[in-house]
């Protein structure tokens, strides 16, 4: 995990280094131009006159001390800015993962019982839709449908500032109401992947030798399905869910932009418009960290299911 972070940081530095123009240019641009003397001063300030490896080393140390620089646009430390926005993204990403995974497994198991039936057809259609429909487009369509034409969900944001209450549940309900559409939008893609994979994996397991053994033991269809087959078909689905974490985070960026959800995604969108490079790089580091944590969690779940996976890799 630490290596992954280190590599992201080095990658960040390399991209900064290779990109046309340097930080001084960017800052000068946001300030609306600077003269030659100011530029030299800026360059010394950022250590840009130092040799390559010294710069790299300094950059890594700086980031390791959680100093991600300053946002020119918001005029505050990037780290504080990210901490402010991180919870919203975490909420969106993890709720979407949990919802799509649990619904996907249910749907997949149900469809596998009848491989040529309607439910299987539905899972196949759903997976085609999930793959083909761009998530931001699905988001806009849902927004049009359920916020504009049938206004049951709020259009944007995470909370309704007009609510005045001390009750935690009132606020929680408010956030949930705001969360629903973005979460469903994001979950829809992965629901499609997971249900299809779960169905396929279930069908494969149902053809396995040990399922035949279970049948020969006289177990009922229900026991075979829910005990023997389900547990075995979970591993590939959960492994895939772990691999999908980075895709979920990528999707969240688009979904947040559509719904103005105040997380890292909207922040990234705004910093692109504002050419606020340090913020963008900070977000890259933190979202990578988020994916790594997600992977560790899926590893733990996998390990609890399958006794054959042991030790760390």
């Amino acid at each position: 995990m630490l290596t992954v972070l280190l590599v992201v940081i080095i990658l960040n530095f390399l991209m900064l280094h290779l990109a046309p123009g340097d930080i001084a240019d960017t800052i000068a641009a946001t300030m609306g131009g600077a003269d030659e003397k100011d530029m030299i001063q800026l360059r010394t300030e950022y250590g840009l006159d130092q040799p390559f490896f010294i710069q790299l080393f300094q950059y890594v140390i700086k980031v390791a001390m959680l100093d991600l620089g300053n946002s020119h646009f918001y005029n505050m430390p990037v780290f504080d800015l990210i901490m402010e926005r991180l919870p919203a993204t975490l909420l969106l990403v993890f709720s979407a993962q949990i919802v799509s995974l649990s619904l996907g497994i249910l749907l997949g198991v149900y469809a596998a019982q009848n491989p040529n039936g309607l439910s299987s057809l539905f899972v196949n259609m759903l997976s085609l839709f999930g793959y083909a429909a761009p998530v931001f487009w699905t988001g806009i369509l849902l927004l049009i449908a359920f916020s504009l034409y049938i206004p049951i969900f709020p259009v944007a944001g995470m909370r309704d500032v007009t609510i005045e209450s001390d009750n935690f549940f009132v606020h929680a309900f408010d956030v949930a109401r705001h969360l629903f559409l973005p979460m469903i939008t994001l979950a829809s893609i992965f629901l499609a992947y997971y249900s299809r994979l779960c169905r396929a994996s279930m069908l494969e397991v149902l053809g396995a030798d040990f399922v035949r053994t279970a049948k020969a033991k006289g177990l009922s269809q229900r026991d075979i399905l829910m005990k023997h087959a389900l547990k075995n078909s979970l591993s590939p689905v959960i492994t895939f869910a772990g691999l999908s974490f980075s895709a979920v985070v990528s999707g969240a960026i688009l979904v947040e932009t559509v719904y103005s959800w105040p997380g890292l995604g909207t922040l990234a969108f705004n910093s692109i418009i504002a050419r606020d490079t340090p913020v963008l790089l900070g977000i890259l580091i933190f979202s990578t960290l988020m994916v790594t944590v997600g992977n560790l969690l899926t590893d733990m779940v996998l390990r609890s299911i399958d006794p054959r996976i042991q030790g760390s890799q």
Binding site: D209, F210, T213, H228, I305
Partner: peptide, 12 residues
């Protein structure tokens, strides 16, 4: 059955 390697459920 023939295949003792696969005839038992690996997770129980």
């Amino acid at each position: 059955f023939q295949e003792p390697m696969t005839s038992l459920n690996p997770l129980f």
